[in-house]
């Protein structure tokens, strides 16, 4: 009887829904190498907010019966800012007091999947300021397409990986953008 209770619990756990919170973003190898490849003074990370349709999608992502959320106390827009901050900090180029400030608006945040494929897109309007002067103002976008799966837990894990990987990729795109590099030049 005891075994049957355990079995029922295992079945419920494996088939039922769950919500999980992501860990804070870690620095990414490509982003770090990008930051080491050009001269950039330390910068502050300003506000990251979500606007337009992205504002309504700024909390959790539900795939089949599972939901994943950005780290405690943040939104997806905040997660983007934290990803950038992690990169700058790992490169010794983060200074909250710097007059050079990078901020952003998450303007697009879409994801979805069916039994066979998944797709996610995020886009942000990045701005670099020095005092009141805007040095850079550009929309950047990342998209991912992947094979999904009939099994919900496999589909969920694939969506989580592909969606969250867009954030370091978007930051890497910013750090490799020649216009950004020109704007932040010492």
């Amino acid at each position: 009887m005891k075994r049957q209770w355990w079995a029922a619990a295992a079945l419920a756990a494996s088939l039922g829904g769950c919500t999980e919170t992501l860990p804070p973003p870690a620095p990414d190898i490509e982003g770090l190498l990008a930051l080491r490849s050009f001269d950039m003074p330390p910068a502050a990370v300003g506000q990251f907010t979500a606007t337009g349709p992205a504002a309504a999608q700024d909390r959790g992502v539900t795939i089949r019966a599972g939901t994943f959320r950005p780290p405690e106390g943040t939104s997806w827009a905040g997660y983007l800012g934290d990803t950038l901050e992690a990169q700058l900090a790992a490169s010794g180029k983060h200074d909250p007091q710097s007059p050079l400030r990078i901020e952003g608006e998450l303007v697009e945040n879409r994801r979805g999947e069916n039994m066979s494929s998944g797709r996610a897109t995020i886009a942000a309007q990045f701005r670099v300021r020095r005092g009141d002067m805007i040095l850079y103002d550009k929309r950047l976008e990342q998209r991912s397409d992947w094979d999904s799966n009939y099994f919900g837990f496999v589909a969920y894990e694939a969506a989580l990986r592909h969606y969250t990987a867009l954030y370091p990729k978007l930051v890497e795109q910013l750090l490799k953008d020649p216009d950004f590099r020109k704007a932040v030049k010492p």
Binding site: R3, Q4, W6, A7, A8, A9, A10, L11, A13, S14, L15, F151, F153, V154, E157, R161
Partner: peptide, 21 residues
């Protein structure tokens, strides 16, 4: 490792059914 986790999740589901019999 996530694949292992997925595999174990599938396994947990079906073995839990199997364990009744």
């Amino acid at each position: 490792m996530s694949k292992l986790r997925a595999f174990f999740a599938a396994l947990a589901a079906v073995l839990s059914l199997a364990s009744f019999a």
